[in-house]
Amino acid sequence: MNELSRRKFLKGGLAGGAMVSLLGKSSKSEAAPSFGGYPDSMGVLVDLTRCVGCRSCEAACNKEQGLPAPDLPFDDMSVLEEKRRTSEGAYTVVNKYEIPGKDHPLYRKMQCNHCNEPACLTSCFVNAYRKTPEGAVMYDPTVCVGCRTCMIACPFYVPAYSYSSVLNPVIKKCIFCYETRLKFGRPPACVEACPKEVLTFGKRTNLLKIAHDRIRNYPDKYVDQVYGEKEVGGTAWMYLSSAPFEEVGFDTHLGNDPIINYVKEFLTVVPMVLTIWPALFAGFHLLATRKDVQNKENSAGK
């Protein structure tokens, strides 16, 4: 009930003005505030300095989510030689980064970041996504029409398309173990499996304090940034690193505005979706080009 559907999200947020005027009600003037997330929502702080790349988290996720058998055993470290992406069969993957001037590689676990203001959610025009008060971004396959807008909109390239079920197209991604754990107040399977507590589970607000304390206590160990504190309006999964984030595969050009800010122009007219396909596609195109430009910038920077 109190889950944040896209509709409420739009009403209370950026598109508030447009909605309210449509409904002919007076509005408390809201200056397009950032939603900023539910106050008690949970998150995970991922401390890259602790990760040993053992892939226990991947194995645990596979089991918890009932995912298909992997191509190689989870104790086969040869997969770390390639940069992998999350997929319909793997909601989380760990990648290895050699850092110039350091004896040790860093490992980075990837999964859905469960954004405070998720681009997948705001870009979906059939409301297939919701953000739960606990912090999970959930997806409803019964509503999804398989248009893949969310895949384009997600700044972290997370939603994966399930090609294995052509007749029933579904998007697959990490769901923060919501159905089996998070909604019962339990930590995700990957968090529980990690031998080194790379993954600290807790209230997002507490995790931020913990993250900044770690940086303050060990200034030589960490770069002074908590990735996900502000990026794209804040994410539930946040990261600490000993190397600059762009050296461990993070996009550091996303900015701090939620992606919705970039697409609100066309989102306000989404209810009339059938008449505005051109506008929608212009919007998708904008998103896609934005990411391409960033990618070019990123690779140019290397």
């Binding site: 339990r186 930590p187 968090v191 031998p195 507590e197 507490n206 304090k209």
Partner: peptide
């Protein structure tokens, strides 16, 4: 990371070591 422990931490503001490793991580 079970609720019982997290709630205990949250309920007692005299605990200084809030970022204390769990047993498995302390070993590792």
């Amino acid at each position: 990371f079970e609720a019982e422990y997290l709630n205990k931490l949250a309920a007692d503001n005299t605990i200084y070591h809030v970022d204390r490793l769990g047993l498995k991580a302390a070993y590792h």
